[in-house]
């Protein structure tokens, strides 16, 4: 096997650097499956090293095998980096989920985003979404906890321009068929989710 790294944990450092770059550039990168697998391979290898050292050494720890300590530290560090990488991605995905007001189908229908997720992450998002929906259903219909919390509402109504057709929507004024290019004055609460998802745009 050709060693593509020179030092223990080099790969894990690469993985964590990727997370840092992701935060710094505010982008979601493609799930780095090859690198994750490589690190897991390194972990198995380290485990084998440990076993072979143990097999050669006496029953009680005499301090004659400092290699053990190095292997063990490496294992812990690699593992921590792996978990940190996955946790970082989950946090990012959750941010994206809330940024579109919890519209998961909208998020997953984008081929660009979909291609960057691992199948397990798609699973996670689906289950997370259903948990949040459970939580939301504990509140009455009047209070949608999923709606935006970045800007406090200043006006009841808002003038919107339709960017993409989004079909017939029930509003306080009855149902409205939003078609591209039209403008409407509507209750903010009724259509806020459509603004978030990019169907409508607020006219200033």
């Amino acid at each position: 096997m050709v060693q593509t790294y020179h030092q223990f944990c080099d790969l894990a450092t690469q993985l964590v650097t990727e997370s840092r770059r992701s935060t710094a550039s505010d982008t979601l990168f493609k799930y780095n499956d090859p690198l994750v697998r490589q690190i897991i391979r390194e972990q198995r290898q380290l485990e084998a090293f440990i076993q072979s050292v143990l097999a050669d050494s006496p029953e009680t720890f005499t301090g004659e095998t400092p290699a053990l300590l190095i292997y063990q530290t490496t294992i812990l560090r690699n593992k921590r980096c792996l978990l940190a990488y996955h946790n970082h991605r989950i946090e990012r995905l959750k941010d994206m989920y809330w940024a579109v007001g919890g519209a998961l189908p909208h998020l997953l229908s984008s081929a660009d985003i979909r291609s960057k997720l691992s199948p397990l992450e798609v699973d996670f998002l689906k289950k997370y979404s259903s948990q949040v929906m459970d939580f939301r259903s504990e509140f009455s219909d009047e209070l949608d906890i999923m709606a935006g919390i970045t800007e406090p509402p200043k006006d009841l109504n808002v003038l919107v321009k339709v960017i993409r057709d989004c079909g017939v929507i029930q509003t306080e004024l009855g149902s409205i068929d939003f078609r591209k290019g039209q403008r409407f004055m509507v209750r903010r609460a009724d259509i806020e989710h459509l603004i978030v998802q990019g169907y409508l745009e607020e006219v200033q």
């Binding site: 198995r44 978990l83 996955h86 397990l120 992450e121």
Partner: peptide, 11 residues
């Protein structure tokens, strides 16, 4: 999620 994507594959 951690178990499925990382821990399961470790020794």
């Amino acid at each position: 999620h951690f178990e499925e994507s990382v821990l399961k594959a470790l020794p």
